[in-house]
Design a protein around this nucleic acid. Structure first.
Lengths: 335, 335
DNA sequence: TTGTAGGCGTTATCAA
DNA sequence: TTGATAACGCCTACAA
């Protein structure tokens, strides 16, 4: 608070000739204040330009009105639906979110979490179910509602709202095989211990194996590479890998990039090569042909997670909720 | 703080046999603590799982480490570069941002500001230069660095980092006329008193007038309409408006939508109609043809604004800075 | 319906 | 180099 707003409850109390607690009650709309008193107090508060100090309030009441939200990245459109719906949903209830970025790394996630915890959020919503031991301990120690999102697990910290990344990739791959594709290559973001990219790759491979197929190739695209440059890389990859008939991308951005670059290189999609994504972002609709993909219900996950946090905080619920929001295979033009 | 983390400075002080203030100093890395003492304290703090309470610290020190950022919307890609670069830049210095959405409305902006001020941010970065009287008063009252971004003004609240929306539209229009276009129609977001859409429209019309041209039509697209649906509306608009050779869009999303839908309807771009945008977002690069537009330096504005806030807070500077980051006309395929 | 007393956990200030 | 004291602004608990 470099911001020294000069008017406090005490000033209003003095001006109104009542005690600070009466002012506090009046301004918070508690029912035990005489209407006249309240009216007078409200007037004085407005006249003096009073702005409540939520920092002091938070310290005393042990309620910050802050919900920590941790996602891999806020750049790009992947998690923005989720974050927006959390923000909108919790905003209605008077909560504010503070965002941390894990940069797809559980140690970074831990560092971000440690920083956010210092602000004593009333709840935590965190993408992913794989965390460091310290992170899990910290989450438990905080004693606030925690909701993990964007994946499922049998061993949640508290509540979880997600979908099976592995299952989605598995079913999607089966559906693609059903459609006639046989020669798959996979393009993925970096895979680490049980992260979502890995789970998707696993599901994809399981489906291939089940149908007696094997992969024609695989390539990893680093995080934070732009759509177009990953597309160039993938164009080269599919050109160099003979005979692929379907490029299975475990994330939407690289699928879009690949589609754009392959088309610009003169390939016919899906005839020369099919390309599929995973996630469904708005940009998938503006390319030609529009992208066949798995729609992930990011906004819904955010909304449900926010609802759970809110209901736990208002005592309507006890945590330990698991919700599988599923996924939807969305056929468009690229496969 | 539903989050009752059980260990406080006092607990550590007792375990270490020193006073709380010594613990405080040790943990903050202040230079007046004996290395031995510090080492012992650090050890105990780790062992007990101490997490500093920034709420208490903020109350006492009058520093929250929070910077309020207010933008029209965080959905969509328009302001995300700006917000990200603010966040990254301030993050380096240990600040955290809290975001508010004005929804393109100065009364809503005021409401959001009033809510954010209660958290006593150490600084404010706010998109736009047109605010309610109350908002301006509040910003002044807070006595923290304030940076307005995304536009220029002669009468900033404190500092301003932006560019001339009017000037950009004016120059861009002149350049388009130079290129041979004569029959312009304009598509814009809602225009209100001196907002950016209006300034852009004004600049566009000034250029037309200067060259003795007049507009062939205009249409307003409401906020928050998706790219594709605004594109449909615009396709109908240009089909119904005879003879237009260039659709001047004052925002990028509607330009992209229009390009996609016109092309899907079989129009040749730019031969049948040229379409230009304003802003330059990543999606402008993946459509065909890629969009000719004005590149706005959103990340740079964010970076500079963050730098100013930081420098003011560290006493290196006094506020009252004006920076014009300019804009760049980016020729691609649609005009 | 209103008030008194005290404390939330930390840090500024002054003293030793 | 360390400590005692008080205060930041508000709200909980209890009392009247």
């Amino acid at each position: 608070m470099a911001s020294k707003l000069p008017v406090s409850l005490k000033d209003i109390a003095e001006a109104a000739g009542v005690s600070t607690i009466t002012v506090s009650r009046a301004l918070r709309g508690l029912p035990l204040v005489k209407p006249d008193t309240r009216k007078q107090i409200t007037e004085i508060a407005n006249r003096l330009g009073y702005v409540p100090n939520q920092v002091a309030s938070s310290l005393r009441s042990r309620k910050t009105g802050l919900i920590a939200v941790i996602v891999p990245t806020v750049a790009g459109s992947i998690f923005s639906d989720t974050v927006n719906s959390i923000s909108n949903e919790l905003g209605k209830a008077g909560y504010q979110i503070i965002i941390g970025e894990s940069s797809y790394d559980i140690d970074q996630e831990q560092a971000v979490l440690e920083a956010l915890v210092q602000r004593r959020p009333d709840g935590v919503i965190i993408a992913g179910v794989n965390h460091t031991r310290t992170s899990r301990e910290l989450l438990a120690l905080m004693n606030v509602p925690v909701v993990e999102i964007w994946d499922m697990t049998d061993d949640p910290v508290d509540s979880v709202v997600g979908f099976s990344n592995r299952g989605a990739a598995y079913q999607f791959t089966l559906a693609l095989i059903e459609k006639g594709y046989r020669k798959f290559a996979i393009a993925s973001g970096p895979m680490e211990h049980r992260n979502r990219a890995q789970q998707r790759a696993v599901g994809h491979c399981e489906a291939l194996a089940e149908k007696g197929l094997s992969s024609f190739g695989s390539i990893v695209i680093p995080h934070f590479m732009g759509m177009l440059s990953s597309g160039e890389t993938l164009l080269k990859f599919v050109t160099d890998t003979s005979d692929v008939d379907c490029l299975f991308c475990t994330n939407e951005l690289i699928a879009i990039g690949a589609t754009v670059q392959c088309r610009r290189a003169g390939m016919r999609i899906p005839d020369d090569i099919a390309i599929v994504g995973f996630g469904n972002v708005e940009a998938a609709l503006i390319i030609d042909p529009p992208l066949t993909t798995v729609t992930i219900h990011g906004a819904e996950m955010g909304r449900e997670a926010a609802r759970i946090v809110f209901e736990c905080l208002s005592g309507k619920r006890d945590g330990h909720v698991s919700i599988d929001v599923g996924y939807t295979i969305t056929w468009r033009g690229t496969a």
